[in-house]
Each structure stands twice: as C-alpha cells, then as structure tokens.
Amino acid sequence: MLKLNNISKSFGSIKALDSVSLEVREGEVLGLVGPNGSGKSTLLKVMLGITKPSSGDVLINGKVLQEKGWKHFRKQIGYMPERVSFYDNLTGRETLNLFAKIKSVNGKYEIIKRILSEDIQSRKVGGYSKGMRQRLNLAQALLNDPELLILDEPTSGLDPMGIKEFYDILDEVKSRKNLTVILSSHILAEIEDKVDRVAVIKNGENKAVGSLEELYTGLKLPLKISIAISEANTMLEELLQEEGAEDIRYSKGYLVASVPRQSKLKLLSAVLQKQNSFADLSIREPNLEEVFFGVH
C-alpha cells in the first residue's frame, strides 16, 4: 500500500532519517518503535507529506507520490497525533463537524458514535478528560473512513482502563474493514500483541523490520526459562550451563536463564528428567522490549 524508498532527511547538519526503506502492507498493523529522537516522528511526517524528504521516494500502490498527489492521498489517511487539545470553546460535535468539512466528508461514519457518545459530543471540549480528548482525537482521525490510520503514541497519558478502551475500539474498527494501521509507540509491552509487524527505528535508521517471530529468529534472541524452586539448586544450575544456557540467576523463587533457541528441546528434555527437584517450569519467547534492546 505505502512504500518508503531510501528516505533520507536532514535538518541542517542533523541527519534525522538515513536511507529508510519500509513497506506498509494493506490491512496490517505496523508498529513503529524507537526511543525519543530516533526519527519516528519525522518518518510519520514524511508519510503524511508534512515533511519533504531530502532524498528518496514515497510510493502509493507502486507509484511515486508527486506533490500534487498528496491532496488525494490524504483523503485516504486518518491521522491521530500524540498531542492535540482541540478547541475548548467548541463541543465535540462542532469539532467533528469542522474537521468533517475540512476533509470533505458528507456522510456520518457510524463508528464515531461508538467512540464518542452523543452525550459526550454535545459537551464542550474544555470539560473533557484526557481519555475523552483521545477518543475525540481518534474520532476525527476516522471521520473520513480512512484506508490508512496513523496513530502517534495514541495512549500517551491514558490510565490502564483508558488504554484498554482505546485498543478495544481500535479492534472494533479493524474488524469492520480492512484498515491498515501504523502504530507508533515507545510503550513496547502495550503494542506487542496489537501489531502484525514491527519496524525498529534508531538514529534515523530502520534497524529491523518484520513480525516478532521473524525478529526473534533473525536476531537469534534466546528463549527465557523459569524454573520454580524452593531453594538454590546447583544441580539444575550445572545442567543449564551444560546445555548452553546463559545469564543464569535466582529471582523471587525462580531459577531463570536465557536459552539458545536451538537448545530448547534438548534442554527441556534434560530438565524434565529432574522434575522431582522443582515445582514448576515455564519457557517463553522474548518480548518486544527484548527485541528492541536486541536490535540496539
């Protein structure tokens, strides 16, 4: 759907983006992760046409997007910026009507009522909570029934309930149509199970891109094993060491270690033979945070 080809962007002597190539596939949720100042926001602005790349191309459905094409492309985009407070003196409905006219939207999109009830829409935005403002922000992004939804730190400042509500709504929107979503966030645990693929941006470079499984494999990240034990067990420690486990330590009643992916079965088999010496055992894949630091 959207493809970035060798995008570079410099602001004076500062290189914000360095030959970033990235493909956003139709219908997927692409997570954009990276530390503050990594170039994520600049990359989003290039995708929105607000920032012109110093070099490289933005392609839509295989065609290079020229300056005049942006106006048309933006009709297909919904953008939810991280920080927007809207106009305190307008009601939610007036705000949505303003942006509907700007986006040349005639019909009312039904999902808007689900995001922001009629009652909340009739209130002045000045009296909105942070969560309501984020809902209004999402509603304006969805006004034009977009093909591509770009979310920049969408849950920033929300409490856990607000975060859950937000992703429930996003799931609902996704279930109604084949929406493509770009989700930029630095809260890795939060988006881990929401994304189909992840692009890790650092120092303006695209360090890695792929599904989490592809990244685990590509980065050769070890699995995490946790063995519940009542007291220190040197026999198990030695066993783990023999099977190539690393970073072996005790933590809150567990013997934990990093296990090379290729040793998984052999190690499990060896440990299970000593099952009388421990109460429980779990083995898990690395999480997005570990992928993130693995890339770094």
């Binding site: 929105l48 607000i50 933006r74 985009i77 910026p81 927007v84 809207f86 106009y87 942006f99 700007i102």
Partner: peptide, 14 residues
C-alpha cells in the same frame, strides 16, 4: 500550541 495545526497540515486542504 493546540496541536491542531498538524491536523490541518495533513488534511486534504492546501
């Protein structure tokens, strides 16, 4: 300051 400028910039208006 309100953050709405960015919304205008990425909307389909010139």
């Amino acid at each position: 300051d309100k953050g709405t400028l960015e919304l205008f910039l990425c909307s389909p208006i010139s």
